[in-house]
Design a protein around this nucleic acid. Structure first.
Length: 104
DNA sequence: CGTGTGACGCGAG
DNA sequence: CCTCGCGCCACAC
């Protein structure tokens, strides 16, 4: 009887991702108690409030899940770069920049 | 109500 | 590396 997962619940977790680090959709899903609800995360982020560090959320392959040529896609990549995150062949090394939520 | 649709994930081939 | 399929969750029609 799990209650409906609200967007706010998701945003709370996203807000905890420290600058210079990234989290995956699946990771956020697990943190809110929906191990297989990764899709739900993307749905919520698509309509997230301003001020939320949405750019720190990427997919499990370390890639940005937005069209590379889209306005938001380019913005995400730029903002991550500004935080010191390095892209290698359009990909982010999760072992290095992945947010270690367990220790937080 | 049934159906479609994602800023997803993961295993197979 | 790539594509296909299926599971998943909430929501718009």
């Amino acid at each position: 009887m799990t209650p409906p997962l609200t967007d706010e619940r998701i945003f709370e977790v996203v807000r905890r991702i420290p600058p210079g680090h990234v989290a995956t959709y699946g990771q956020i899903a697990r943190l809110v108690g929906r191990p297989r609800g990764a899709r739900r995360i993307g749905y919520a982020l698509h309509r997230c409030p301003s001020g939320l560090p949405w750019h720190r959320v990427i997919n499990a392959q370390g890639r940005i899940s937005l069209p590379a040529d889209s306005t938001s896609g380019l913005a995400q990549r730029r903002r991550l770069s500004e935080e010191g995150i390095v892209f290698i062949s359009g990909r982010i090394d999760l072992d290095r920049y992945g947010w270690d939520d367990a220790a937080n």
